[in-house]
C-alpha cells in the first residue's frame, strides 16, 4: 500500500462520433499512454460512446487560475456588441 507506484493521472477526451470534437469525459490513472488508452476504452466507451480517444497527462495541462477569474475574463464582459442580439433590426427584415 505504499504510494511509491501510484500511476500518473490522465485526462480522457472522447469523440462520440465522426463530425464532433473530442469532449472531456473524465480522468484515470495509468502507467503510460498506451495503458491509459486501453483503460480509457474500458472505462469510458463500454457502450460504444466513442470512435476516438485522446489521453493527456493531467500534469501537461495548463489551466487559468480561479483567482484570475475576474480580471482574466473581464475584457469580454463589457462588449455586448459582439453578440447579434445587441442590434435592433426593424420587424420584417428577413435573412438577418
Amino acid at each position: 500500500m505504499s504510494s511509491s507506484t501510484e500511476w500518473p493521472l490522465w485526462e480522457i477526451f472522447v469523440r462520440s462520433r465522426r463530425g464532433l470534437s473530442h469532449t472531456h469525459a473524465g480522468s484515470l490513472h495509468a502507467p503510460d499512454a498506451e495503458m491509459a488508452l486501453r483503460n480509457a476504452r474500458d472505462l469510458y466507451t463500454r457502450r460504444s460512446e466513442g470512435v476516438s480517444l485522446w489521453v493527456v497527462p493531467a500534469a501537461a495541462i495548463t489551466a487559468s487560475s480561479p483567482d484570475e477569474k475576474d480580471s482574466f475574463f473581464e475584457p469580454a464582459g463589457d462588449k455586448p456588441y459582439r453578440h447579434p442580439t445587441f442590434y435592433d433590426i426593424p420587424e420584417g427584415v428577413k435573412h438577418l
Binding site: W7, F13, R15, P31, D32, M35, W54, V55, P57, A59
Partner: peptide
Amino acid sequence: EAAAAYATKQAGAPRADTAATAHGEATA
C-alpha cells in the same frame, strides 16, 4: 509495480510520473 517499471524503462526516465509524454495520440 511491473507496469510502472515498464513505463519507466520505455520512457528512459527515472520515474513513472515523468514517463507519460512520448507519443502524440492527441492527433486523431
